[in-house]
Design a protein around this nucleic acid. Structure first.
Lengths: 222, 222
DNA sequence: GCTATCTTGCACACACATGTGCAAGATAGG
DNA sequence: CCTATCTTGCACATGTGTGTGCAAGATAGC
């Protein structure tokens, strides 16, 4: 039935509220992965009942958050293509950080027993990029070789997650710390890291807005 | 009433069961800080009801775990007194690791909203040692100075926790990875770390049993 | 201003966890 | 072997979270 005379469109405030719920959930769950549906709804300025009008399930809501976060994660991973694995790693971290507000949720939820598996599959592309990066870096003698590639990759991931999850996103110095931490894990001394960052000043100044975020800027709400 | 003719002593199996509950709780909560009392009791081979015969509260049980873990933590911290802060840090990590089975709980619980504050105060001595160590190391030019002391101390702590919490304790290589990770965070290159570990082979072979655990086998209860 | 859409608040039913009371059974230990 | 101690299983009250149904009210949008 191609119902040309559709009874009526979806109201605009409805989709705005839906987006608001996602934003609120992102914030709330990043702080506490076990936050209740009521907490999320309240944070979005809606009632719990209204939330269930937009999402079938609590898990449906979480699914959507993970999907969105993973998409950003993976998109960032695809963009990195520096010849030097150390630069690539640094850029990956820095770019990832610039999206910290959007990915903190995924990072936090990744620790939740109930959704580990889902986040794992969602982040598979990023994992592949990282694994390849580490392997290549070790072959080229740029990264440490005293730790096996898979272990090192995992270590980078866990460390990065820790920094992203438990850092003050607001602080301007945080980005630098994240990058330095990853490069440390990968085997560089802090002076080597400093030299590398001076040689590549673009690492600390993320690409102009738009380049990194192909996802339409979701308009903010109250 | 100094009741000389005490009705009867506490049975021996009772205290054994109490210890069993603590051990089970340690294991279970390390894996999932939100594990139910029933899960813990079952893991100890007892009924939920029996557990409440040994502990007033769920929190009472957690309290005891945190206290025991923190005591081990802090005892280890006190023993480290190397002149070189890098060696001290490495030894601290290695010794801490040798008690990993006992401290994983505290590390896991430390992330739980409900008990952060308690673990924070319980681990205060360790934090002080670490803070002093970092400050001294920076003054002596042994540790990186591009990150402020408090931040670096926090970074070390978070990283160590991550490794302790999310590593395969069984693997013999894990200890080495933990030490290398901490030294990396602190600013050393992986080759510097390797050289340091070769120069101090005692770091990778923890002191003989008994040296590290001055805690007397906790006898009977209150 | 009419109406379909959205939100709200209240009512449930259900599941799960905590903590307690009590009677009946097992058992360590004198 | 006797008995105080311990464990067990059940029932119960309480609290919290999830998901749904329904009627009444607000409001966007034609």
């Amino acid at each position: 039935m191609t119902d040309t005379s559709a009874p009526r469109r979806q109201r605009r405030d409805a989709s705005a509220n839906r987006a608001g719920i996602l934003a609120a959930a992102s914030q709330t769950l990043a702080a506490d992965p076990h936050a209740s549906v009521d907490q999320i709804a309240r944070a979005a300025g809606l009632s719990r009942r209204a939330l269930y009008g937009h999402f079938d399930d609590r898990t449906a809501l979480v699914h959507e958050l993970i999907a969105a976060g993973a998409q950003r994660f993976n998109a960032i991973a695809q963009q990195v293509d520096d010849a030097d694995s150390r630069i690539a790693l640094a850029r990956l971290t820095a770019n990832l950080w610039s999206e910290a507000a959007h990915v903190q949720v995924a990072a936090a939820i990744a620790l939740d027993e109930a959704h580990v598996e889902e986040t794992a599959t969602a982040l598979a592309p990023l994992r592949r990029v990282l694994a390849a990066l580490v392997r290549r870096g070790q072959d080229d003698g740029e990264l440490r070789t005293d730790i096996a590639a898979p272990t090192l990759a995992r270590l980078i991931e866990e460390t990065a997650r820790t920094v992203v999850t438990r850092a003050d996103t607001a602080s301007p110095a945080a980005s630098g710390i994240a990058v330095r931490t990853v490069l440390s894990i990968v085997g560089l001394s802090w002076r080597e890291t400093a030299a590398l960052l001076i040689a590549h000043p673009d690492l600390m100044t993320p690409p102009p807005a738009g380049t990194l975020a192909p996802i339409p800027a979701e308009e903010g709400r109250a």
